[in-house]
């Protein structure tokens, strides 16, 4: 393993290896769109309060797996799965698990920012309002906390009641992140959160991801391998519905174990 002298700035003081402090556990998980098997028996253990990146070419199954963590895929007709996904040892498919409650524990940020057509303030407090929370002081405290978490407070504090649709693309995406953390989830799923942003907005979101991992377990799907290497501690490489390699990000980007990973990250694919 690595020495302290060569510590990657994003890594914790102690070396981390996959398998420690497991939080999300994917156990021989298969997923089907109708008859098509999109994921072929994935086994994966994601630790808490770390950033884990999913990389791989289009159609490899990385987003499909991500969207299973909060059972989003069940909105698609004809899908089914085999195997299991557990969070803190409890299956997300356990009959006692309520999907709404599960999604409250798992925030999600999408490729395209999707602020609601309402004010910045109302966007943030929306998850609280639908949970029945309408106390003004609680809502105001939440708005400030979430906007500060998303590094957006200073930019919008004087126009909280303006429409969210008037924000820039990067601000809208950070607003969506702020909204995603409003219900205090444990996990934050990000599906290519920067692919529609310019480099400066991307840098701000990346800075935010690094900051948010203190409080959240983050799983990010990205096609930008430099982004994966910058923000994540662990990287999983998927190909054709299989998990090819899962390891420390530094290992993946300096000396991957699998030839397919090496070929993909060095651009020798296809």
């Amino acid at each position: 393993m690595t020495t302290e002298a060569s510590q990657h700035p994003l890594e914790l003081t102690n070396d981390f290896a996959p398998g420690e402090s497991n939080f999300i556990k994917v156990d021989n998980f298969k997923f089907f769109y109708g008859k098509k098997e999109a994921l072929h028996g994935i086994n994966l253990e994601i630790p808490s309060r770390k950033v884990t990146a999913f990389i791989g070419p289009s159609g490899c199954g990385k987003s499909t797996l991500l969207r299973n963590f909060n059972r989003m895929n069940e909105l698609i007709p004809g899908v089914h799965h085999e195997g299991d996904i557990t969070i803190h040892g409890t299956s997300i498919y356990d009959p006692s698990v309520e999907i709404i409650a599960l999604r409250r524990r798992i925030g999600m940020v999408f490729q395209k920012s999707n602020p609601f057509p309402m004010s910045i303030f109302e966007n943030i407090v929306y998850p609280l309002r639908i949970a029945g929370q309408n106390t003004r002081s609680v809502l105001e405290e939440t708005v400030e906390r979430c906007l500060r978490s998303a590094a957006l407070w200073d930019e919008v504090k004087d126009r909280l009641h303006d429409s969210a649709l008037g924000l820039s693309g990067g601000q809208m995406q950070r607003l969506c992140i702020a909204r995603a953390v409003a219900s205090r989830p444990e996990i934050l799923l990000m599906d290519e959160p920067c692919s529609a942003l310019d480099p400066i907005a991307t840098a701000k979101v990346e800075e935010l991801i690094i900051e948010l991992k203190k409080d959240f377990t983050i799983v990010i799907v990205t096609h930008n391998m430099q982004q994966a290497s910058r923000v994540s501690e662990l990287t999983a490489f998927f190909y054709l519905g299989n998990l090819v390699e899962f390891d420390n990000t530094r290992k993946i980007f300096t000396n991957p174990s699998m030839k397919q990973t090496e070929e993909y990250i060095t651009g020798r694919f296809g």
Partner: peptide
């Protein structure tokens, strides 16, 4: 120009 990684970077 190419931000090499892994064997290319080495």
């Amino acid at each position: 120009r190419f931000q090499p990684v892994a064997s290319d970077l080495r």
